[in-house]
Write a protein that binds this DNA or RNA. Structure first.
Lengths: 254, 254
DNA sequence: GAGTGGTCTAGACCACAGC
DNA sequence: CTGTGGTCTAGACCACTCA
């Protein structure tokens, strides 16, 4: 890596530092390579370690860096494009190293918040299936599917957890894509999801909320938390669309 | 606000602090209210100011807080749902306090990155329209629309910037919704977008990349950066979908 | 001017990976 | 054990808002 002296500027040091690091990474490092450690970098650029870390925080938020305790700071691979909400056309998707893995299936009374999002009364029984989405061997998302038990009377007598989960998933597939509507927002992983995603609490995630409607009524709700560092969510008819080298990110804008 | 003594736990102090603050906010503060200042909060909880700020950083990332220099820390309003990618059904949307405002329109040679995303050769001429999306008086997004000049020969002779912008926008509308495909990922606002969004550089944003295809060819690309703190992006047939009180966020999941 | 959040420092100790 | 990133501290100064 090049020299280090930061020319005096009006912008914050950590922001300028981020820019310099970004330039350096693009020029001299490749995916997976470990960068010099934080104490060395901070010394090289003549800043406190905390300031350097602030710059690294930014780059990590952008998905350009991965930091592993005990190992070092690595240049991250480009984000994986993860299809969201295109109808599962059978095996076509599963073939692309894409997999869902059910974690558990519980049936319990709805909390106040959950009841509100489902449009039911607090305390009503709700089936909840938790599952992980795994793409090319990496866990990219944790999902909770909530279906009011009232809509699935035959499941009430099913004791086996796996069977109940299967019943819930089948029900959602039956609903069809026409009644789905989605939202995406930024969030942080709480302890439960954080553990499933194998990340520390507070990890930034993209929260995808799906409402499944049937006959004008809200039939189920799904909440998926995607790792924001490694995922790029893709929407729309992925088949028809043009497939240019879509590696670049917002850099194209400026 | 209640007392402050943090019970000893295994999790990081700042994370526990975040949880306590969140509980306090929900219980004792309402939207827009200013919280005690950072020095007082850190004293009350018996932590260094930097540690408290780490907890506030988390809450700000979740959109629960807004911090204004010289003013204080405020409890944020719930995120605004912003429709993305549903076809502009004429005036129906504009009526809902929704507005686009063109900033400028330039025509220049494509950079390497832009050429790659557009699938053209580097250096080819590209029209770029920058515009802001304003919802209920708040600027929520900055967008750059890139259209290769080759596809719009009649625009080459148009001198007036506003006329050229109009031509580009008309062209995109003509393409129709069938050829659109989108992706969403997390990013940070660079200086240019940051200024347009009236936020400091490094502000987290949701980057929406739209590919406009026509006749199987990529005809244009749009890059929109939405303020992640205030926006919840909504997709799909917003009309048909159920409209339950959709205020709650990921809290419903756990 | 006083009061706020934003930046930066220099140092300490902890938790984890790998030899 | 050494080396890494993760957490936390106590203090300083700056940039901004508002009376």
């Amino acid at each position: 890596m090049g020299q280090g002296t930061l020319t005096a500027v009006a912008e914050p040091k950590y922001w300028h530092l981020r820019t310099v690091l970004l330039r350096t990474m693009d020029a001299e490092f490749s995916t997976g390579q470990v960068m010099p450690n934080e104490r060395e970098l901070s010394a090289r650029f003549g800043v406190a370690r905390a300031t350097l870390r602030q710059a690294l925080d930014q780059l990590e938020l952008e998905g350009r860096l991965v930091r592993r305790r005990g190992i070092g700071t690595l240049v991250a691979a480009p984000r994986v494009g993860v299809p969201v909400g295109d109808r599962e056309s059978g095996r076509a998707r599963s073939a692309r190293g894409q997999e869902w893995k059910v974690v558990d299936c519980t049936t319990a009374a709805a909390s106040a918040a959950l009841a509100r999002t489902l449009g039911i009364a607090e305390g009503e029984q709700v089936h909840t299936v938790r599952r992980l989405r795994i793409v090319q061997g990496v866990t990219v998302a944790a999902e909770s599917l909530h279906v009011p038990a009232a809509g699935l009377p035959h499941l009430a007598v099913v004791v086996d957890e796996n069977d109940r989960a299967r019943g819930v998933l089948r029900q959602l597939e039956r609903l069809g894509a026409d009644g789905e509507s989605r939202s995406v927002e930024l969030g942080v992983a709480e302890s439960a999801e954080a553990a499933l995603l194998e990340r520390p609490p507070g990890t930034p995630v993209l929260v995808v909320t799906t409402q499944y409607a049937a006959a004008g009524r809200l039939a189920a709700v799904g909440v998926s938390t995607y790792r924001a560092d490694t995922c790029k969510l893709t929407f729309g008819e992925s088949g028809a669309a043009v497939q240019v080298a879509a590696t670049s990110t917002a850099t194209a804008a400026s």
